[in-house]
Amino acid sequence: MENSRIHIPNEKENESIGSSFNHLVKVVEETERTLGKAVWDFSDVTFLHPFFLAPLAIYKCQSVKEIACENISLPMQSYLNSIYFDRMLHFENAAKETAQMVIEQYASHTHIPLCSFSMTDANKDAFSSIARDLIVRQAKVGAGISTPISYFISELIDNIYEHSESPNGFLFSQFLEQEGCIDLCIADSGITIFKSYEKAGLFQEEIGQDESESLRLANEGRSTKNRPGAENRGYGISTSKRMLVEGLGGSFFMLSGSAFHRYEKSDINYYADVGKFFHWNGTLILLRIPVSAPSNFNYIDYLE
């Protein structure tokens, strides 16, 4: 079987989420078409945007394809090593103190390496708390931003736990000082949002075979686990998204199976189905979080 050489594009620091996603689709699609070994050629790469890099690493670590990385410059190799691009840093029911000690080594960096963490009650909560603390310290943000960050991390990771059936969650974070933001990626390798509704047998008439409809319902807070009059589920994604985009002026991107959703302040708000040519195993969420909140932002206003 022939090997395929796949060009990894160089990116700009101010790359948009859409552009990073565009690069990701190309690389994943070409890799999936490869019958032999896929060789990712980094010869042009001097910078990789976090929103391209994190999904690419998650894809590589989950893929059954044989993937080799070649022509990586020394500085780029050093960065890829430091973020655990090839193998991820795994937390398997580690005691909170142990996990904290490992993560603490990144206190003087601007990123949290690519981490996978097992989805047990205690482990995911301990990891969420440690990751939140480090993100807040690296970006030196105050309570105005740290409380929303806690909200995003807790709700999104709890959603993975409640709905995805994924054994592990993934997290990567990069503080971009010049851009004044934190790029945060939270993902799973679970059953996708579409499959979660299908399995629950809910909203099937509305969804049909259109995966983008299932994303819309999830983003509107239609939970698969709501018990009318008793519980109050389904707020996690929708409130996180409103708080991030409308409150803080950040950006939100969600990819699940064969559909994606993009929501940004500059009137970008849509859902798309790409099932004819692309499929992502699991769900991936990218958040661009500004490190300073607008003066009129109040966390409480977004709780609903």
Binding site: K26, N269, Y271, A272, F277, F278
Partner: peptide, 14 residues
């Protein structure tokens, strides 16, 4: 009601 798109191929998406 948000905008809903369906892309048939990679070029359309790009």
């Amino acid at each position: 009601h948000p905008k809903m798109y369906k892309f048939e191929n990679q070029k359309q998406l790009v």
